[in-house]
Amino acid sequence: MADTPSDLDALVAALWPQAGGIDPQRMAELVGEVRSIVQAGRDAARGNAFDDEPSRFAATLHRLADPGEAGHD
């Protein structure tokens, strides 16, 4: 199918025949591919590091809200 996301599930599928006991070495190699996924997501995140602190996600959602729709007083 078109651009179905390749992700952890796809990596696990590759390992399935041994799923009763995943080979940690093989898993570690494959999870290395995850880093490229994360890096792609972080390419835009090169500015203010504190704004990227995970708990500030909620603040971002509030900032992106439309005051007219969000129940602001």
Partner: peptide
């Protein structure tokens, strides 16, 4: 278990990307 093999740095990287 796949999640258990993700390095903490990458997990935090994923979380920190969300806001942007």
């Amino acid at each position: 278990q796949s999640g258990a093999y993700v390095p903490a740095v990458d997990y935090l990287g994923a979380l920190s990307a969300r806001a942007r």
